[in-house]
Amino acid sequence: MTARPLRLPALAAVLACGGCGTPWQSALHPGGAQAGGLLDLITIFTAVCGIVWLLVMIVTLLTLRRRRAGIEAPLPRDEGTERRPRRAVQAAVATTVVIIAGLTLLSFFVTRGLTADDPQALVVRVRAYQWWWEFTYQDPRPDQAFTVANEIHVPVGRPVRFLLEAPDVIHSFWVPSLAGKQDLIPGRSNEITLVADQPGVYRGQCAQFCGLQHAHMAFLVIAEPPDRFAAWQVAQRQPAPEPATDEASVGRRIFLARQCAACHTIQGTTASGTLGPDLTHVASRRYIAAGLLPTTRGSLAAWTADPQTLKPGNNMPMVPLGSDELSAVSAYLTSLR
């Protein structure tokens, strides 16, 4: 943990919300039409409700205009003076009815807009595990399908349909800058369709409490122009590159010999475990362990050496490795681009 100086201006900016959050994970910074539509809806609701609240508060303050310092004898009941307040209350209730009817209708139409289906959509199957994400890009030709973890690329402008499954507990798929969230529920299949209209890096985070490391269950959505996306796709379909250095090939041998291979898959090797993320191109991803650490050789080594300290309770055990072994394994992992 690095100690940072207090940022007083940020504190002052709290009310304006300039100071909170980053554009890559925020309902207030849409990167696609859906999130944009939702932001408009949020704005309208906030404005309407804000005005209603203000009006009510003005009346509330005005009730104090006849306040007294001490307790006086109770006022006599007088039906005559009740007429005006009664009219006011009736009018207020009627206005309430109109406003909520309007908001309900608005909400209904926006809901309908959310569920547009597009046959052109790219289809990605999402499996959420305690505490990481597996994405399989579907393809009519089975050999063209491929699996990645914790980071996906999408082509700008093209809808992507996510088929949501949860093999263990409930999780929730949420990329606020692109769309609202949708739960992944064991025994049920849900889906959600997203479109990114602007290239960029959007962060998603599991929103449903799913146990110990719910806080560390993030993923990245990288939206890029269709040609860059196609190139990425081609690269991800490749098996893992052959180790280029001796150290890396030693690393591969250790990886395959130790428990690692029982849990992880590396295409092009004998490692075909499914309990952990597919590592075929792990070094091409920006973060490891669901957003926990930026991918560097150091962080790969640190993670392999002691995953339980970095992300307590996660489902990867500590596999005892000597320091040479560790260095070799991390060299190998770093080569998996």
Binding site: V110, P176, G180
Partner: peptide
Amino acid sequence: SVPFDTQVHD
């Protein structure tokens, strides 16, 4: 509101 809630739920 359903759409509003998809952004702020949880």
